[in-house]
Each structure stands twice: as C-alpha cells, then as structure tokens.
Amino acid sequence: MRRTLRARICLSLLIALPAVGLGTGTAGAAPEPTAQPTAGVSASATQYSLHSSLDRALGDHTAGSYLDAKSGELVVTVTDAASAERVRAAGARAEIVRRDTAQLESAMATLESKAKITGTSWGIDPATNQVSVEADQSVSAFSLARLEKVAASLGDAVRIKRVPGVFKKEVAGGDAIYGGGFRCSAAFNVSKGTLRYFVTAGHCTNSATSWSATSGGAAIGTREGTSFPTNDYGIVRYTNGSSPAGNVNLYNGSFQEISSAADAIVGQAIRKSGSTTKVTSGNVTAVNVTVNYGDGPVYNMVRTTACSAGGDSGGAHFAGTTALGIHSGSSGCTGTNGSAIHQPVREALTAYGVVVY
C-alpha cells in the first residue's frame, strides 16, 4: 500500500512464545477496561488483497478504502467514473469523493509544517474523506487555537477531536520481554529460512541489545534491528535455540494461530494482545497516521479504538489468523473510547526480510 506519511503512538501487544515462557505469566495487576468499544466488521482475505491491489492500481484516483459498518462490503473511494467502473469490475463497491489521497496528504503536510505540536496526531479517514486530527489533554489552549487556525485554512478536509489522556509510549509493567531496564511485549514470531525472530516496538529495542523472558533472567535473544522515531519497529533473533510457535496469547488458556499478514482497513474489527491489558477489541479508525511524541514524530501508523496501558508496547494487533500491527502507544482509554496506535507489521516484515508463520 502506498504511504508517504507515518505515525505512531505506543501500545504493546503480547504474542505467545510458550517455548521460552513468554505470554504464560501475568505478573502484576492487569487493569481491565471498563467497557469495550463497538467492534468493526470482519475483513476477508479477498478484501485485504483488493484493498492493497486497488490502492496501488488507482494511484491518485483514490483516497483509500474502508469496510461498510452495516454490509461489511469493501468500499473503495474514487474521484472519477472510470475509476469507479474499474473498482466494480474488481468486485468492490465504488464511492466517488471530492478529495483524493494526494489532496489529503497535502493537508497533512500543512499540519506537519504549521501545527507540529506534541500531543497531536492526524491520519486519513476514507469513510469521511477527511484528515482526522486528535489533540490530547497536554495540548494547551494556545496550541489548540493554533491547530484550529491551521485546520480552518484547510476547510472541511480536516476535523479535530479532543481526546482524554496523553499520547505516550507504553513500556511499563506486565509480564513480557525485558531489556535495558524496561518491560515490553513481543508482537509476532517471524522467520527467515531456519532462523527465528520476534518483532516488537522500535522504542523498546532502542533501549537494549539483549532481551530476556523474565526480569534478570537468561537472555533469549539479541537485537538485530531497531527503528524509532519515524518508524516504530524492531527485531530480536532467538539465540537460545528455541523455535517458538507462531501464535498470539489470548490470555484465556488458548492461543490464536497466525498464518498471514496484511494492512489494516478502516472500519474493520481488530484485537490487541498485550501483557498488561491482555486482549482488548476495537476497530480501525484512520490510516497514514502521524503521531507527535515528545521525543519525535512517527509516521504511517494506524489508529484504532482498542484499549491499552503501560507494558503493552510492542504487542500484537491482529484479526483472526492475520497479523496487522505492532503496538506503539496510545492516549489511554476512557470507557469505550481508546485511541491506540500500531505500526503496520507488513512494513517491518519487508524491512527485515522475514515472514510470519
């Protein structure tokens, strides 16, 4: 999928790694969300494929795709009748909109240059053909006024929403992976030939080269790559001879097998598995998201309504057997309203030349 802007917040999700003891414990109290957000609709393998292939084929004649909340159909936004016919011929529903991806990305570039304020994030919502902006509680009235002025100059291409809490990386608490004095969660086990690795958040792997399954325990793996800020992914190679299963811990005594990876679609239902909040549910609300952390921006992220907390950083965002993302961060969760961000996992897999299994 073509993306030029990228963003992240930090949520950790925990993949099950039973061979090395990851995902089998529940150290510390695990706060439970008071309620779960309304879930989106399920995405099929065909819809994932069409979502990616049509985005590439249509180029600037589209502004992205989303899943219809009622029918579950893949809706591809287009800017002209010829492109609409192409979409219908491919088996998806076409919707003609005013703004294409280039125009929405131009609006985000204006926000980047004129309103790059810590505590804000923005991304594309194809369902409304707008740039969706969020400002957390750390954004002052003065800064919010500046943001609103810039947004007003862009007309109805931009909408702004205040969100509770503060956007932050969530690297505290939980029974997960340990390195550099921090706790994070592993996302997905991956492979390259006979070698085994796990991927996690880059703001986690930035902190240490050696990683353990328990605090102060023997090393299970060594960092072989890390990228944060701008991106938020890292990779650790197992060095203890283990070949852990390619599944995700559901924290109810069972595990979810993972067999493929895809880019998330706005409107789809997702689950997040993390070592602190365990498994939470939500739906995808924006793509191409930029998050302005205090220590630098991250780009091309995905925003969801799943709840998360400290210690979830690096964990797994997934739907059924499909891996979608690596938890980066959030502004927390109030009632049914989470604002969790994940790094698209396919980008990390491509960067390191690895696959899920």
Results as ranks from 00 to 15, higher is better:
E257Y: 07
E257C: 00
S259K: 14
S259P: 04
S260F: 01
A262S: 14
D263N: 14
D263E: 12
D263I: 02
A264S: 15
V266S: 11
G267I: 06
R271P: 00
R271E: 14
K272E: 02
S273L: 01
S275W: 05
S275Y: 05
S275R: 15
T277M: 04
T277I: 10
T277P: 01
K278V: 04
K278E: 11
V279Q: 09
V279L: 09
T280H: 12
T280R: 13
T280Q: 12
G282R: 07
N283S: 13
T285G: 03
T285K: 13
T285F: 01
A286E: 10
N288K: 12
V289C: 15
N292C: 00
Y293I: 01
D295G: 02
D295K: 00
G296K: 02
P297G: 00
V298R: 00
V298W: 00
N300V: 00
N300K: 03
N300C: 04
T304R: 03
A306P: 00
S308F: 06
G310F: 07
G310M: 01
G311L: 04
G311D: 05
G311K: 11
G311V: 08
D312R: 14
D312T: 13
G314S: 09
G314P: 08
G315M: 06
G315K: 06
A316N: 05
A316G: 13
A316P: 12
F318W: 13
F318E: 05
A319F: 10
G320R: 09
G320M: 08
T321A: 15
T321N: 15
T321H: 14
A323G: 10
A323F: 03
A323T: 06
L324T: 04
G325K: 10
I326P: 05
I326Y: 04
H327Y: 06
S328A: 15
S330Y: 03
S330T: 12
T334S: 15
G335Q: 11
T336V: 03
T336F: 04
G338E: 05
G338M: 07
A340E: 09
I341T: 11
